[in-house]
Amino acid sequence: MRSGSILEKVLADGKFAVTAELGPPKGADPQVIIDKANILKGHVDAVNITDNQTAIARMCSMAAAKIAIDQGLEPIMQMTCRDRNRLAMQADILGAAALGIKNLLCLTGDHQSFGNHPEALGVFDLDSITLIKMVKDMRDVPQFQCGEEITFAPKLLIGAAANPYADPFPFRAVRLAKKVEAGIDFCQTQIIYNLEKFEEFMRQCVELGVTERCKILAGVAPLKSAGMAKYMKNRVAGMDVPDEVVERMAAAEDAQSEGIDVCVEVINRVRDIEGVAGVHIMAVEWESAVPEILSRAGLRAGSGS
């Protein structure tokens, strides 16, 4: 085992993994995380703890991940390259491992202009791919990025994100292959609504041998309203929401229930696609939807079965 995490075991056993997302609060109250963790606990194998998501300052992902551990929920700590340089990142990686965090998701991060501190300096000393390589070397060699030896290696399962809907499309599977080359064990994709494009992306991943070396979790999310569908379609960078999904949400009497149904249908479709090893449910600020989605999809956390 590389990390000894539950997620690693579920994936290694070939079980269909289920992960969700838990956003830390814009404040210092640990209870927010405790409450969210208790909604998700028992339903998912692990939860992503976001890192200043969309460049909005929040409680740090390491502290929130530790609180999740204390609640009996396994965290996937997210780390972006936007807010810290390689020194700070390595310090945080060692600290996270020392606190019992076993999964790390490596991201470049949204540009600071999206968030609530657009005047901040964007660090970007590394990018997601050089971060992945650094974490792998810290774990497996083990050495720091500078080449110095590490005496007690951080045992972390390494993850990344992949967006099949970004351009140029022929490069998206190649870029994921680069992340595999750099050292990831798993990846979670952008939220999927356009299934045809995702299927093509997965075909390319299979062809490139990505799926043999990396477990791919398909990203899904329940839409709450037609407005949210439109917003995601038009305003969120890197999203692809087909018109028929927007129309379906607009026509629905009970939009929330319809949103969950759409999400369940996506889950059922992606389960049949070769190379898909699990789903990552992004119900941001709607954690209570996760148990409902899983029950309608007839899914249980791999660790729970």
Binding site: C81, R82, T108, G109, D110, H111, F114, G122, F124, D127, S128, I129, T130, A161, A162, N163, Y165, A166, D167, P168, F171, R175, K178, Q190, A237, G238
Partner: peptide
Amino acid sequence: KQLLNGPCGGSQGGHCE
């Protein structure tokens, strides 16, 4: 973002996120 391994996931339609 000074990437050395782009384009990132925010690149769509030829423009930056």
